[in-house]
Write a protein that binds this DNA or RNA. Structure first.
Lengths: 222, 222
DNA sequence: TTATTTATTATCCGATCGTACTATAATTTT
DNA sequence: AAAATTATAGTACGATCGGATAATAAATAA
C-alpha cells in the first residue's frame, strides 16, 4: 500500500517542524481512512478504528477533518487526484493509431486498478445506495471523469475500435471488467486460489481483457 | 422488489394457521434483510432496522434466525437458490449452436441482474474483505456456481465463441460487466440520468453487451 | 524570557448496537 | 376443559459509536 505524502517543501520543513508534523499526522489519518473505508465501507469503518490504525488519538480526526463525512470526502478527493495523475496519457499517446491507443489505455487502467484496489472498493460501496455522499461524489469527481471518458470512447467507436453501443454501456462494462478481479481479490483468493496482487496475474488479466476486447477474430467464422 | 414466499401448501395453511403466520413472519424478515444488507452491507444494516422494515419486533430475528450472521447466511442461501431456479437453461437450450447458447445466456443473465440487483450488491460488499462470512459463501455457493461456469465457458471457448483466455478471467469480466450498471444504478441515476430499472434500458444494455461480445466485426479491418 | 497559539490527549455524553432474559397471549395438544 | 407449547413482545445489559468539551504540553511569537 502506498503512503499518502505530505505536500511540504524541504524549506518549509526546516523552518516549521510543527507544520511538518501536523501534515504527517493528517496523511497518516488519510491513509488509514482509505484502507478502512475500502475494507468496511463508510458505516463499517469507525473513527476510532481509523485513528487506531493511524496510530493517533481518535479526537484528532475531528481536529484535522471536522467530521467523518469530511474525512471520507477528503479520502475520495485524494483517490481521484491520484487517478488523474497516474492515468495521464503518456508521451506520444496522441500519435498512436486509435486501436493502439485503446489497447494501451486498457492495460494502463488494469494496472491502475491492481495498484489501487481501494479506489473501486470505496466507490462501489458508496454507489450502490442513494446517499448525499454519492451525489457529492458524482458531481465532484465521477461526472468529470465520465465526461472525458465519453469523449474518448466516442472517438474510438468512430474509429471502429469499439462497436457503436451507448457510451454509458461501454464505459460501465469496460471499467467493471477492469476493476472486478482486483476489487474482489479476497474472493478470488479463497475461491479460485488466485493471488491478484501477483504481477504475473495482473499482466495475464490485462492480456486477457485486451484479447477479449480487441483480438478475438475467430468469432466471425463461427 | 419481489416477495419471499412461504413454502406452505394450501392444506397446511388451513390446518395450521399458526405455522402459516410463522413462515410469513420469517419471509418478511428475510425480505427486509435482503433489502438492507444490499443497501448497507452486513455491518451497516442493523437488526433493529431490518425488523422495523419487516414490521416485526426486533427480538423475533433471534427467535427465527438465531443470530445476525445466521440471518445473513439464510439471505444468501435464498439468493443462490433463486438464481439457480431462474437461471436454469430453457427447453431446447442444448440444441442451440454454441454461439446462440452464449448469446442467450448473456441476455438471461443481464435480465437476472436487473431483476435482482440486491444479489450482486450483497455479494460484492462481502467479497471485498476477507471475513469468515466470505469463506462460507465461497465454499457453499460461489465455488459450485463457478465450477459449472468454468465447464460451460470451456465449451464455448473450444467452439470459438470466446477467445482462449483463462477461465477465471472470462468469468469475472463477463459477470462484472453484466452486473455493473444494475448494481450501481443509483450512480447512473444521478450521473448519467439513466434509470436502469426501465425495461427499455435493460434490453438496451443486454443488446450492448451481446454486441460487444459477439457482434463486433469491424475491428479486424482496423 | 514571557505570552500566546495550537497540535495532541483525556474524558464524557447521548444514541445505538447485538443479544440475552423474561413476560404474555394465543394456539395446539392432551 | 386443562395443560403444554410457542410465536411474539418487553426490557435490560454491556459495548461501541460519533462527537463535544476540557486539559496539556510544546512550539511559536512577543
Amino acid at each position: 500500500m502506498e503512503s499518502v505524502g505530505s505536500s511540504m517543501t524541504k524549506a518549509q520543513e526546516q523552518i516549521r517542524p510543527r507544520e511538518q508534523q501536523k501534515q504527517a499526522t493528517r496523511a497518516k489519518i488519510l491513509q488509514a481512512a482509505l484502507d478502512l473505508f475500502a475494507e468496511r465501507g463508510f458505516d463499517g469503518a469507525s473513527i476510532r478504528d481509523i485513528a487506531k490504525r493511524a496510530g493517533v488519538f481518535h479526537g484528532l480526526i475531528k481536529y484535522h477533518f471536522e467530521s467523518k463525512e469530511e474525512l471520507w470526502k477528503s479520502a475520495v478527493d485524494y483517490l481521484f487526484e491520484r487517478q488523474s495523475k497516474e492515468m495521464a496519457d503518456p508521451d506520444g499517446f496522441d500519435d498512436l493509431p486509435a486501436r493502439e491507443q485503446a489497447r494501451d489505455w486498457i492495460r494502463r487502467y488494469v494496472h491502475y486498478c491492481a495498484r489501487h484496489p481501494e479506489h473501486a472498493r470505496i466507490m462501489v460501496q458508496e454507489s450502490l445506495r442513494d446517499t448525499e455522499r454519492l451525489r457529492w461524489a458524482v458531481k465532484t469527481h465521477i461526472e468529470p471523469v465520465h465526461r472525458t471518458a465519453r469523449k474518448v470512447s466516442q472517438r474510438w467507436i468512430e474509429a471502429g475500435v469499439y462497436p457503436a453501443i451507448p457510451l454509458h454501456a461501454l464505459i460501465y462494462m469496460i471499467s467493471a471488467a477492469a476493476q472486478s478481479p482486483f476489487m474482489l481479490s479476497p474472493e478470488l483468493k479463497h475461491g479460485a486460489g488466485i493471488d491478484m496482487s501477483n504481477p504475473a496475474q495482473i499482466d495475464a488479466y490485462a492480456d486477457a481483457l485486451v484479447t477479449m476486447l480487441f483480438d478475438h477474430s475467430v468469432r466471425r467464422e463461427n
